[in-house]
Computed example of a mutant assay.
Amino acid sequence: MKERGIIFNSEMVRAILDGRKTQTRRVMKVQPVLNGNWWEAYGAAWGKENKSVPVVPCHSLANNCPYGQVGDRLWVRETWQGPLVDSEKAYDLFKDPAPYQKVENCVYKADGGHAPEYIDFDDKFRQGWRPSIHMPRWASRVTLEITDVRVERLQEASDDDFKAEGYPLERELTGGSTDPFCWFRHLWNSISKPECNFESNPWVWVIEFKRV
């Protein structure tokens, strides 16, 4: 079993914590190329009509999946701040931060609070969040176990798949359509690069997971 970090924005972290998100789709950096009647990528090939392909252990696709294989784990990187301690512990923190590098000494943007205020190591007053890309393993509060991996065209997802991507609760929908397809298309286009938007229908890694 291997562990890898994976970034989610605050909206998706909330969906994971709520149990609404059990899938994630990520664009394949190497897009399959159509060669006659076969799609080809990473030394693997599948029929032109196949829009979804399981990624099985020891297969070349599995060996090249950047997110791992079934049974591997993903630790979630999210927007955060920490470690934060009370003023009477500040000196000890600055002297040796290691004992305070724990989840309970962190705050997370996904929880909906205001950006924290704190004194930094240079004794300067600060306010703000640290970006998810800089989150170390010790600060991650969410670990996921991969239960299935496949590659497929983005538009092949079903309504059930769209909902498993973190479809919001009815009370959280604000304006626009409540249709899962429209919701996911808007979500995808809001976070993807223009050349990989929903309409371009890229091949994606589909990672299904459960929280552990």
Results as ranks from 00 to 15, higher is better:
Pro66Leu: 08
Arg150Leu: 10
Val107Thr: 00
Glu104Val: 11
Thr178Asp: 13
Arg185Gly: 06
Asp86Ser: 09
Val76Asp: 11
Val103Asp: 10
Ala44Arg: 03
Gly36Met: 04
Thr22His: 05
Val142His: 02
Leu17Asp: 15
Gly68Glu: 03
Met12Asp: 09
Trp46Lys: 09
Leu173Tyr: 06
Thr147Leu: 12
Gly5Asn: 02
Ile16Gln: 05
Trp129Met: 08
Leu144Ile: 10
Met28Arg: 00
Pro202Ile: 04
Val206Cys: 02
Trp205Ala: 02
Asp122Glu: 15
Asp161His: 11
Asn63Lys: 14
Asn35Val: 06
Pro116Thr: 05
Asp160Gln: 15
Gly112Arg: 01
Met135Arg: 08
Val149Asn: 01
Asp148Phe: 11
Arg25Trp: 01
Leu61His: 04
Gly128His: 04
Trp183Val: 00
Cys65Asn: 14
Thr147Arg: 13
Glu208His: 06
Pro32Arg: 03
Gln23Ala: 14
Gly112Ser: 00
Tyr167Ala: 12
Met1Asn: 02
Ala164Lys: 12
Gln101Phe: 09
Thr24His: 07
Asp123Phe: 15
Met135Ser: 06
Ala98Cys: 12
Lys89Asp: 13
Gly113Glu: 12
Val212Ala: 07
Glu88Pro: 04
Arg185Ile: 09
Glu145Leu: 14
His114Trp: 12
Arg25Ser: 00
Ser60Asp: 06
Arg20Ser: 00
Asp18Phe: 11
Ala90Met: 14
Pro168His: 09
Asp148Arg: 13
Val206His: 00
Trp183Gly: 01
Arg185Leu: 02
Glu172Ala: 01
Trp138Ala: 09
Trp183His: 05
Glu49Trp: 00
Lys124Val: 15
Cys106Lys: 03
Ala45Phe: 10
Gly68Ala: 08
Gly166Cys: 08
Arg171His: 15
Val30Ser: 10
Val53Asn: 01
Pro57Lys: 00
Ile133His: 01
Asn64Phe: 05
Arg153Ala: 00
Arg171Gly: 11
Trp46Arg: 09
Cys65Ile: 08
Ile207Ala: 10
Ser177Leu: 14
Lys21Glu: 14
Ser10His: 13
Ile7Tyr: 02
His114Val: 14
Leu34Met: 05
Pro66Phe: 10
Gly19Ser: 03
Arg77Pro: 07
Gln101Val: 03
Gly175Lys: 03
Gly166Pro: 06
Asp96Val: 12
Arg137Gly: 11
